[in-house]
Amino acid sequence: MQEHFHQESADLASWLRLAMTDGVGPVLARRLLSVFGLPGNLWQADAQAIREVVPAPVAASLLRAPTAQQCERIAATLAWVQVPGQSIVTLADAAYPPGLLQIADPPLLLYLRGNPALLARTALAVVGSRNATTQGVLHAARFSEELSRAGITIVSGLALGIDAAAHAGGLSGTGSTVAVIGTGIDLDYPQRNRALAQRIAEGGCIVSEYALGTPPLAANFPRRNRIISGLSRAVLVVEAAAQSGSLITARMAAEQGRDVFAIPGSIHAPLSKGCHQLIRQGAKLVETTQDILDELPAWSVLSSQQAVVQEPSPAAVEDVDPASRRVLQSLGHDPVDADTLAQRCGLDAAALAGSLLTLELQGWVELLPGARYRRLV
Rank of each mutant, 00 (worst) to 15 (best):
Y96A: 15
Y96S: 14
P97E: 14
P98D: 12
P98T: 12
G99W: 08
G99P: 14
G99I: 12
L100W: 12
L101S: 15
L101K: 14
Q102S: 15
Q102M: 12
Q102V: 00
Q102P: 00
Q102T: 13
A104R: 14
D105G: 07
D105H: 11
D105M: 05
D105P: 08
D105N: 13
L108Q: 13
L109F: 02
L109Q: 05
Y111G: 02
Y111P: 00
R113N: 08
R113I: 06
G114K: 09
P116K: 06
P116L: 06
A117H: 13
A117K: 12
L119M: 15
L119F: 11
R121D: 03
T122C: 02
A123W: 05
A123P: 03
L124N: 09
A125N: 11
V127T: 11
V127P: 00
S129Y: 00
S129K: 06
R130N: 00
R130K: 10
N131F: 03
T133S: 15
T134H: 04
T134Q: 08
Q135I: 00
G136R: 10
V137H: 06
H139P: 00
A140S: 06
R142V: 03
F143W: 09
F143N: 10
S144W: 03
S144F: 01
E145F: 02
L147E: 07
S148W: 02
R149K: 13
R149N: 11
R149M: 08
R149D: 09
A150P: 01
A150E: 05
G151R: 01
I152F: 01
I152P: 06
T153N: 03
T153P: 03
S156L: 14
S156H: 11
S156D: 09
L158A: 15
L158H: 04
A159D: 04
L160P: 00
D163Q: 13
D163C: 07
D163T: 12
D163K: 04
A164R: 07
A168L: 12
A168W: 10
A168H: 13
G169S: 10
G170W: 01
S172Y: 02
S172H: 07
G173E: 07
G173C: 06
T174P: 02
T174N: 02
T174L: 10
G175K: 00
T177D: 07
T177R: 00
T177H: 03
T177W: 09
T177A: 15
V178T: 10
V178Y: 05
V178I: 15
V178P: 13
V178N: 08
A179F: 08
V180E: 08
V180K: 06
V180H: 06
V180F: 01
I181Y: 05
G184M: 03
G184Q: 02
